[in-house]
Design a protein around this nucleic acid. Structure first.
Length: 735
DNA sequence: CATCACGCTGTTTTT
DNA sequence: CAGCGTGATG
């Protein structure tokens, strides 16, 4: 099985150094497309080949999938035993360790992991009842609260400092939020819950406070590699230091210019600090780029040239020629969608394949218009990012049932499970949970619950639930999923009108569950490695749409042609305004990452006339929006990019329609949501934002915005919500 | 007590 | 669009 590898021949000299320096601390600064993954894969192979037991090698990556793929490659390359190398994320490592040592930290070893939405729910439930004095300002909502608390934990900064800087809107609530933070912490401890942040923090605590755990781990993992080091936060970098404390065989690989996770506390300065902590560090630079043409690299270099802090490196390639990157002003949002899809169609006629293209954008909803246009043109695409599988209500519901089976003290999930039953709301849920706690009676005794206003109508489903759960105690994951499905599908059908779609998604859980022996493991993995939204399963000949943050975890890493949608947006909160230098730095790095994914063609497209969706416009002052792009473009030397624009006189941006017609609030326009598509529906063919339409019953309306790939929102005068599901095929476009 | 209809507000990214 | 609060209804 073992094969001889000629490392010298297969690697360039910098890569060779990285692969063959096995002992001591190594920092690899790997520019975009410089064969970083290749270096890691070969190094794993080399380590195993040189006789080091695979179990004592640890490869920490950004996603577990990434680790598995690398190990698989290494295994194919040389020694099949590479598969036994330990690989995963910081979170999965922390999880593994904490499952056997959590008791040291006054946690049960069978603690429950809270995903982001659980965290929000828990925090929300701790907010004191009456919503605080009805002042002018509103108390932050649960997602913001979670943001603040999580960020404070990740950055290890007191809530008040953080809020003064980044959440200035809410400074008046600092005392309440501080006590909420403490309350949340106590709640987690009391109920044996850990959120994502706790996993990391508690692992560090173990490493620092318990020398025997530290030595044990250090002895176990004698050779450690960390990928995407620029995306670690300072707690994770502490972990790296302590893990390597005994043997100092640690290689970190990253690119400070490619840090895209600062919003969750990632600190690319870890790259600079590594040599400080390990003075004997060997620094290796990978600067030869094997991906892009020279003009694209020139843009990338020029972009980073202006960055305030960086490891100086300069990407170069031996490829000659290539087109200059193009910055395309498409005037309007619809224009942008049309431009991109026409470009693709045009190229398809010239022998390109549909998989040659990728469109990168900043956030989920930027792609909506494009998705609609691609659908109309029959161009197949896969979208990564945006809504998460785990976040959708039906998945959360389902998971909650599984969770209470594993841990019957799990209040958050109980609330969810019980609340799903008819006529059981917050009050009775709380009462039942209290009753279960205090009387510690077997769940089959639900009949004895002394709830107020209880009657057969609620007792019947309750006892059904409890007998089902009791009968499933200790069964295997497959059976559990099957049975919960049987119970939950009635509720599902009742609760959602798009029942079939959600059922189909739930059905995916069954094959997943089969791979596990213990239900708890299945749940942990779902939380630690949430599957992407459903279309991940359907790959094939498709153009890819990606949010930038999914780049590391999405399948493709490079494409012949890359479009970047760099949309303008509405006004940002003060802390996020583009005048803020750190925000600009963040944007700069994002643009760099996006640009360097392109092999041959790079087109940055933006709607120059800033098309804000109507709903956004209505809430904003006139001068709400700023171009994210202009500050970068202005700073580039001559000739690095070329400019183009399309004129599109006919389609007017939403904005001017607003001005002429009503001039301000749209309160006399009611919302009307319609399912757009099917594609052969001629009426929907060429609608775009700003178009006026006519409906026989409701009169004039205007296309407000795209909701998702197949829905548009139309604003009508005098049409109430009840009309939501009305036929809209009678819509006529008014030219 | 639970539920529903309504109106208002605010939106980036994810392990 | 979701998420939130409010007030009426059963």
């Amino acid at each position: 099985m073992q094969k001889e590898i000629d490392y010298k021949k297969l690697l360039n000299s910098a890569q060779f150094d990285a692969v063959t320096t096995l002992e001591g601390p190594v920092l690899v600064i790997a520019g975009a497309g410089s064969g970083k993954t290749r270096a890691l894969v070969y190094r794993v192979a080399r380590l195993v080949e040189s006789g080091i037991p695979p179990e004592s090698v640890l490869l920490l990556t950004f996603t577990r999938k990434a680790a598995q793929e690398m190990l698989e490659r290494a295994a194919g390359l040389s020694d099949a035993r590479c598969r036994f190398v330990s690989g995963g994320t910081f979170h999965s490592l922390a999880h593994r360790v904490l499952r056997s040592h959590a008791e040291l930290l006054d946690y049960s070893n069978s603690f429950t992991i809270l995903d982001r939405s659980d965290m929000e729910e828990a925090i929300h439930s701790l907010v004191p009842g009456p919503r605080l004095p009805k002042g002018i300002h509103k108390f932050p909502k649960r997602s913001t609260l979670a943001d603040i608390i999580s960020k404070s934990a990740n950055l290890e900064r007191p809530v008040e400092d953080l809020m003064e800087e980044e959440y200035a809107q809410f400074i008046e609530f600092i005392p309440q939020i501080k006590s909420l933070e403490t309350g949340y912490r106590n709640y987690k401890q009391a109920n044996h819950l850990m959120d994502y942040d706790d996993l990391i923090i508690n692992l560090r605590k173990l490493l620092i406070d318990y020398p025997d755990v530290r030595t044990q781990l250090s002895l176990r993992y004698r050779y450690i590699m960390v990928d995407e080091y620029q995306d670690t936060n300072s707690i994770q970098s502490d972990i790296v230091r302590w893990l390597a404390h005994e043997h100092r065989n640690i290689m970190v690989v990253g690119d400070d210019s490619q840090s895209i996770y600062s919003f969750r506390g990632a600190n690319y300065r870890n790259m600079f600090e590594f040599p400080v902590h390990f003075p004997e560090t060997r620094i290796i630079r990978l600067e030869e780029n094997y991906r892009s043409t020279q003009p694209i690299l020139r843009l990338a270099n020029a972009l980073m040239d202006k960055a305030s802090e960086k490891f100086t490196k300069c990407l170069f390639t031996n490829r000659i020629g290539g087109e200059q990157p193009k910055v395309m002003d498409t005037m309007t949002g619809p224009g942008q969608a049309q431009f991109i899809s026409r470009y693709i169609i045009n190229q398809l006629h010239h022998g390109h394949s549909i998989t040659d293209f990728a469109v990168l954008f900043r956030s989920g909803y930027h792609s909506f218009e494009l998705e609609a246009e691609l659908n109309r043109q029959g161009i197949k695409y896969t979208k990564y990012g945006g809504f998460k599988f785990l976040e959708s209500a039906h998945i959360k519901d389902f998971l909650a049932h599984l969770r209470v089976m594993v841990n019957k003290d799990e209040t958050v999930s109980w609330q969810r499970v019980l609340g799903l039953i008819k006529n059981i709301g917050p009050a009775r849920t709380a009462s039942i949970i209290k009753w279960m706690r205090e009387d510690s009676i077997g769940p089959a005794d639900i009949e004895k619950w002394p709830g107020s206003g209880r009657n057969a109508d609620m007792l019947k489903p309750l006892s059904l639930l409890f007998t089902k759960l009791a009968s499933l105690h200790g069964t295997d994951p497959e059976k559990a999923v099957e049975q919960v499905m049987e119970y939950y599908s009635t509720i599902l059908e009742d609760k959602f009108d798009d029942y079939p779609r959600r059922k189909k998604e739930l059905d995916q859980l069954l094959p997943m569950a089969r791979r596990y022996k213990r239900l708890g493991d299945f749940i942990d993995d779902l939380v630690l490695e949430p599957p992407n939204s459903s279309n991940e399963l359907s790959q094939g000949d498709k153009t890819e749409l990606l949010t930038l943050s999914t780049i590391h975890s999405a399948k493709g890493l490079e494409w012949p042609t890359v479009f970047i949608i760099w949309a303008t947006e509405g006004r940002l909160p003060p802390s996020r305004a583009y005048q803020n230098p750190s925000v600009l730095e963040e944007e700069r790095r994002l643009l760099y990452v996006a640009a360097t994914r392109a092999k041959d063609h790079l087109i940055v497209s933006y709607p120059g006339q800033e098309t804000m969706p109507l709903w956004q416009f209505n809430n904003r002052s006139e001068n709400g929006s700023q171009s994210r792009l202009s500050s970068f473009l202005n700073s580039l030397p001559e000739g690095v990019v070329s400019y183009g624009s399309i004129g599109n006189g006919e389609k007017r941006p939403v904005r001017s329609w607003q001005r002429e017609d009503s001039g301000r609030k749209n309160t006399n326009y009611e919302k009307y949501n319609a399912s757009c598509v099917p594609l052969d529906n001629t009426v929907s063919q060429d609608l775009s934002t700003g178009d006026r339409v006519n409906h026989p019953a409701f009169g004039a309306g205007v296309v407000s915005r795209f909701i998702s790939g197949d829905k548009i929102e139309i604003l009508f005068k005098n049409a109430g919500r009840k009309l939501l599901h009305l036929e809209y095929t009678k819509l006529e476009k008014i030219i």
